[in-house]
């Protein structure tokens, strides 16, 4: 196989932006080719990433003013008015707390399982690895909406194949529905995270363990002392993507609204954005979006910093 390597080490060096290559000034060669390569992406990225971000911020700074109750509505600059409304909005903060609680439980469970499966796949303990890898990955091919519809049926007290369980435990009740959704998300994404971690494990040269094995280290010891520290960057990566995914929860709870009245239109922050924008109150919805995006960024960024510091120790 002549295909060269994208190893965990590459990802790491790019992630931590290792010493920037040669800062010396040189004349740019092939400017035309560079332009041809970069311009299409740059235009699309600007139009559909940067402009929307800017536009959301702009919209969030406007307020609607009316002359009297039925007067014509005009948008005027309102400064941080919408943000004050965001911070006073109880349901919004409840939804943030809800997804944070969700994340604190679901993300470690999901990544713990993914890590366990990846380590087992990488150990000599299993037969039929190819089958397991495929079987565990299949749910990733199921779109979130479809997975939620499917599990919605599986949870239902009378349609489920597990009625013995579902008629006694009401998974769609206000108490449990959040965790029922957590199960759907876990079901979809464990295999995907497992594959990312497993790929990192495959990139470790086997020679590294051979010495340890000659010294008599068992699989558990090798996994704990050699493998896990080496694949930490991959685990951090899956952690960040999971945190982002959690804060952005939308499709699964939106589908669950038709199975359970416990899922309200303000259940997650993104549902909040959606329902506020369809009132329509786009300025407030834009402010929700901005706060949510900022929260996501701060959280994933501090997670990155936190794990890097731990690694550095």
């Amino acid at each position: 196989m002549s295909a060269p390597a994208l190893t965990a080490a590459d990802a790491r060096s790019a992630g931590s932006r290792s010493p920037a290559p040669r800062p010396r000034k040189i004349k740019v060669a092939h400017p035309r080719a560079i332009a041809i390569f970069i311009v299409p992406f740059a235009i699309l990225f600007t139009l559909f990433y940067l402009v929307p971000i800017g536009y959301a911020i702009y919209q969030s700074l406007l307020v609607v003013e009316r002359d009297g109750t039925f007067g014509k509505a005009t948008e005027v600059f309102g400064g941080l008015t919408q943000y004050i409304l965001v911070f006073q909005n109880g349901p919004f903060w409840e939804s943030i707390t809800r997804v944070l609680a969700f994340g604190v439980v679901q993300v470690p469970v999901m990544l713990g399982l993914a890590l366990l499966f990846a380590l087992l796949l990488d150990s000599p303990l299993l037969r039929g690895k190819r089958f397991f890898r495929l079987a565990f990955f299949v749910p990733y091919a199921v779109p979130g909406v479809i997975a939620a519809i499917m599990w919605g049926f599986l949870y239902s007290p009378n349609l489920s194949p597990f009625t013995a369980l579902t008629s006694n435990v009401s998974f769609l009740s206000a108490d449990l529905v959040l965790w029922a959704i957590a199960n759907v998300v876990t079901w979809v994404y464990v295999g995907y995270n497992m594959l990312i971690i497993y790929s990192a494990l495959l990139a470790i040269p086997t020679e590294i363990y051979e010495a340890a094995r000659l010294d008599g280290a068992g699989q558990l010891r090798i996994a704990w002392s050699i493998k896990i520290p080496l694949i930490m960057p991959a685990i951090v990566l899956t952690g960040i993507f999971s945190i982002i995914g959690t804060l952005q929860l939308l499709a699964e709870p939106q589908v669950f609204r038709s199975f359970s009245s416990a899922v309200t239109s303000t259940f997650t922050p993104n549902l909040m954005v959606y329902s506020t924008s369809s009132i329509p109150n786009v300025n407030l919805a834009a402010a929700f979006s901005v706060v949510l995006a900022l929260a996501t960024f701060v959280l994933s960024f501090s997670f990155l910093k936190f794990t890097q510091r731990k690694e550095g120790k």
Binding site: F45, F48, Y49, I53, A56, L247, Q248, S289, A293, T296
Partner: peptide, 17 residues
């Protein structure tokens, strides 16, 4: 940085634009 911006956060402003 764009990798960290979730696609859902862009949906509403994209709609407005």
């Amino acid at each position: 940085g764009g990798v960290l911006v979730p696609a859902t956060a862009l949906a509403l402003p994209l709609f407005l634009i």
